[in-house]
Simulated scan of single mutants.
Amino acid sequence: MKKWIVLFLSVAVCIYVLSFLNLFNGKPLPEAPRAYIKSASIDIPVETASYYWKFGKEKNMSPWYAVKDKEAIIVPKNSVIKISFKREPDGPPIIRQVITDNDNRDIETKNSNEITVPSSEGIYMYSISADWSEGSAQYAIKVHVK
């Protein structure tokens, strides 16, 4: 009787391990698609602030903390920042201006993949939220309008 229990448990463990390896094919868990953001010919570094992706892969950070210690990229007043993704989201991204850690404000956009920066000089932070069938992600950028 003891042999049958050991044999059964051994087979169950083997099936579990094989199904786990087959599920992931030895590859790392997928993450949210990369975002590309630029103003004219200036590439703006993008931080992935938070995401939740299938199989429970996640990262949680506010956009404020994701970029607060990063160097702001200089962009001209009233310039247009274009947003694109390695893979397009299921719908238009939601763009907000990040004021503080707890204060994000919706901004009006003419095109859902563009931000027109203000004419006032200063440092501005923005969050871009997007959804895919596998999950969602929130990106953050920091610019210095001059």
Rank of each mutant, 00 (worst) to 15 (best):
P33D: 09
P33I: 02
P33A: 13
R34I: 11
A35E: 01
A35M: 09
A35K: 04
Y36T: 09
Y36W: 03
Y36E: 14
I37G: 05
I37K: 11
K38T: 15
K38Y: 08
K38Q: 11
K38V: 15
S39K: 03
A40L: 12
A40K: 09
A40G: 07
S41W: 02
S41V: 08
S41C: 06
S41D: 12
S41Q: 05
I42S: 01
I42H: 03
I42M: 09
D43P: 02
D43K: 03
D43F: 08
D43C: 07
I44V: 11
P45A: 06
V46D: 10
V46T: 00
V46Q: 02
E47V: 00
T48G: 06
T48P: 00
A49R: 04
S50R: 15
S50K: 15
S50A: 15
S50V: 09
Y51H: 12
Y52A: 05
Y52D: 08
Y52V: 02
Y52K: 08
W53S: 15
K54A: 04
F55W: 09
F55C: 09
F55R: 05
F55D: 12
G56H: 13
K57G: 00
K57M: 01
E58P: 00
E58G: 00
E58T: 09
N60S: 10
M61L: 15
M61T: 14
M61V: 09
S62W: 13
S62I: 12
S62D: 06
S62L: 13
S62C: 07
P63Q: 06
P63G: 10
P63M: 11
W64H: 06
Y65M: 13
A66G: 01
V67Y: 14
V67A: 05
K68R: 13
D69E: 14
D69C: 00
K70A: 14
K70G: 13
E71I: 15
E71T: 14
A72M: 05
I73N: 05
I73Y: 01
I73C: 02
I74E: 07
I74S: 04
I74K: 13
K77T: 10
K77A: 15
K77E: 06
N78Q: 10
N78E: 11
V80I: 13
I81G: 12
K82I: 03
K82M: 01
I83E: 03
I83P: 06
I83H: 07
I83M: 07
S84H: 04
S84C: 04
F85K: 11
F85S: 04
F85L: 04
K86Y: 10
K86S: 11
R87K: 12
R87G: 03
R87Y: 02
R87A: 02
P89D: 07
P89M: 05
P89Y: 10
P89H: 01
D90L: 11
D90K: 03
D90W: 11
G91W: 07
G91Y: 10
G91L: 09
G91M: 08
P93R: 04
P93W: 08
I94C: 10
I94N: 12
I95L: 13
I95H: 02
I95Q: 01
